[in-house]
Nucleic acid binder design. Structure first.
Lengths: 148, 148
DNA sequence: AATATATGGTCAACTTACTTGACCATTTTC
DNA sequence: GAAAATGGTCAAGTAAGTTGACCATATATT
């Protein structure tokens, strides 16, 4: 592969990722959820199943636990999450989504589906599937990190 | 396409984009360029051919011209760019890369090539090509924006 | 069992990378 | 030639992270 082709791949990947983020955000806002930032979405995916501790969240997001705690403060203030006592560890607290938090999560999923549908319109179903499979194979482990 | 498949695609795309950014940054640092942020790379790609004005740069990056100006201040302070009078418009200034700026650009290109090579090792050349073509077809116009 | 160390969490202060608002110099429009 | 638009900067404010200090509880050491 030529150097310029690698650069084109890199630029396209980053541009598409930026556009995806923007359109998810717009879609969530369009569904009536304001004051939500992209970073909150990644917190939601970690909180969604059964809740998580602030420390879990910090590791998932790749930030300090202080930053994660401030983010939880914000989610609580906006009514998307709440802190509950942690069963079995009196130091810890379990952060869980409220009903509003679940609704916002569903809105984000709808927004994602909408964007992917437009990609399907351009590429066709088979190529979208191939894109997904290729990306899954090169997906790294480790914390979710902003693309820049 | 199922909703969960769309979510998997979205998550993989964002994770790969974040990892790419991180590895480019690491590669540039490993080649001896310190104090460079990912955002500088996008500025470099705009400045590279013939230079650009601060306003051009702001549009390219999707930020205010004040922010672009501050970013140029930083690049100048670090020796990667310089402000020259603009030929044909005495209001404007042409921001161009210094030799050090070009060297840093080349280092970033090498780092990108290195990452894409590892993807080639996992996917094979044909699938990397297909990935590039698919991404190019869904690449949006407009300013480069952070993925979150 | 008692003590030492590690872990979960928060408070406070600081930093960074942006923003908005005001303003000046030059260019373009009419 | 005057009015409006454009390129750029200065200054101050804001958002989202950081580091450092600290407390409460849990785990490990002896």
């Amino acid at each position: 592969m030529q150097n310029s082709e690698a650069m084109a791949l890199s630029a396209a990947l980053l541009a598409v990722a930026g556009e995806l983020t923007r359109r998810i955000h717009d879609g969530v806002v369009a569904r009536g959820f304001e004051g939500v930032r992209p970073a909150h979405g990644f917190a939601f995916t970690r909180l969604a199943p059964d809740g998580a501790t602030v420390t879990d969240l910090a590791a998932h997001l790749g930030v300090t636990k202080q930053a994660a705690s401030q983010l939880v403060d914000e989610l609580v203030r906006k009514g998307y999450a709440e802190r509950r006592p942690h069963p079995g560890d009196a130091r810890a607290r379990l952060v869980v989504l409220t009903e509003s938090g679940w609704a916002c999560t569903r809105a984000a999923e709808e927004a994602v589906a909408e964007v992917v549908r437009t990609w399907g319109g351009v590429l066709g179903e088979a190529d979208v599937r191939a894109l997904r499979e290729a990306l899954l194979r090169i997906t790294p482990d480790g914390p979710i990190r902003p693309a820049w």
